[in-house]
Design a binder for these strands. Structure first.
Length: 347
DNA sequence: AAGGCGGGGTA
DNA sequence: TACCCAGCCTT
């Protein structure tokens, strides 16, 4: 039996019931694909539901403020996705009268839409024969065909794209693309795949040569860098604190945080006190400095390990820059900050 | 081609 | 701990 026939048979018997499978509306498909980039279905699902509920059309999303979009995205990570999502919604609403591009080539021009997402939308919504290539597809193809070209090399990308494009069911590209991803996600998993019940196990090279754990091959990325973050949690007697918006290029762009002092190593109370005495938020006011967590909270990102200490600064009266503590949950914050806010008793 | 960009889950 | 996830963008 041909590759795609085995696959679609498996899919019809094993596919999960997911909300974006009930529609071919490009807005909802696009939304789901952006949310699911580098994100497991289980994690992305509640965010998809929330976005559909709050922004039922592309115009609703376009009319929102970026800060509100980021707030709804809070906790999902890779926040450039949310910024690009919002920017693209505005473009589609204003320049394209709310109508999405209907082909791979034009979809690829949208901010935040790369090869994978353009192929996904083009195939699912418009039946274009464009094979998707995501982590699942790489894994399935590399194992079944025994391809050991690194999947995160440009050579690998070309090779696997061509292979997938040859295999795709030309009569039903939408079904094939979703099926191969689902197969990779739930059957041909990274760890302990279900080879014993796999419909491909007679033809799978990795299985028959006992190379399941070696494939796919991936070039290792650099180790995460350590950073030391000290967040200054101002608390005034008039129940205000200070949040600042992260500008610039780095992580958490356009999200809010407590004023940050980054140090080369962990810093003790005395040294920090000396260092912030001239902080322009204090304006020479007397203040009390308390260390909230004795051991740094280690927040691990894929590329940075953040050794984090929260410092409480009690002051008499705060500043025009202050915000009411009662409003703190209106701001989009990194989950590291959000967890602190939930655990800290501000009363 | 390489690195930056989150947060959660698995073994 | 190491690796992975319906990747994309910048340099």
């Amino acid at each position: 039996m041909i590759f795609s026939k085995i696959l679609t048979t498996w899919y019809s018997n094993n596919k999960r019931d997911l909300p974006w499978r009930q529609t071919k509306n490009p807005y909802y498909i696009w939304l789901s694909e952006i949310i699911l980039q580098q994100t497991q279905v289980k994690q992305g699902l509640p965010y998809y539901e929330a976005f559909v509920a709050k922004y039922p059309t592309v115009f609703d999303l376009a009319n929102a403020n970026e800060s509100d979009v980021l707030k709804l995205w809070q906790g999902l990570g890779y926040y450039s996705r949310a910024r690009n999502l919002h920017a693209t919604s505005k473009q589609i609403a204003s320049e394209l009268e709310g109508v999405f591009p209907n082909n791979y080539k034009d979809l690829l021009k949208l901010k935040g839409v790369g090869d994978y997402t353009a192929s996904a939308i083009a195939s699912i919504c418009f039946n274009e024969i464009s094979a998707v290539l995501d982590g699942n597809v790489y894994r399935v193809l590399s194992r079944y065909f025994g391809v050991d070209t690194p999947i995160n090399s440009s050579k690998g990308a070309k090779e696997f794209k061509q292979l997938a494009q040859e295999l795709i069911d030309k009569n039903n590209p939408a079904e094939f693309n979703q099926a191969i991803m689902e197969f990779g996600a739930t059957q041909c998993k990274p760890k302990k795949p279900y080879c014993n019940i796999c419909p491909y196990n007679t033809g799978c090279i990795a299985f028959n040569e006992n190379r399941i754990n070696e494939l796919p091959v991936k070039i290792k990325s650099a180790k995460a860098k350590k950073k030391h973050f000290n967040f200054l949690v101002f608390i005034s007697e008039d129940e205000k604190t200070v949040l600042e918006k992260r500008e610039g290029k780095g992580i958490w762009q356009n999200l809010y945080q407590f004023p940050l002092v980054e140090t080369d190593e962990t810093i003790n109370l005395t040294d920090l006190k000396n260092r912030i005495e001239n902080n322009n938020l204090l304006k020479g006011m007397p203040f009390e400095l308390l260390q909230y967590n004795k051991e740094p909270i280690v927040h691990k990102l894929s590329h940075q390990h953040l050794y984090t200490t929260f410092w409480i600064i009690n002051v008499n009266k705060l500043l025009e820059e202050g915000i009411l503590i009662s409003k703190i949950r209106n701001y989009a914050v990194p989950i590291l900050i959000g967890n602190f806010i939930e655990s800290f008793n501000f009363d």
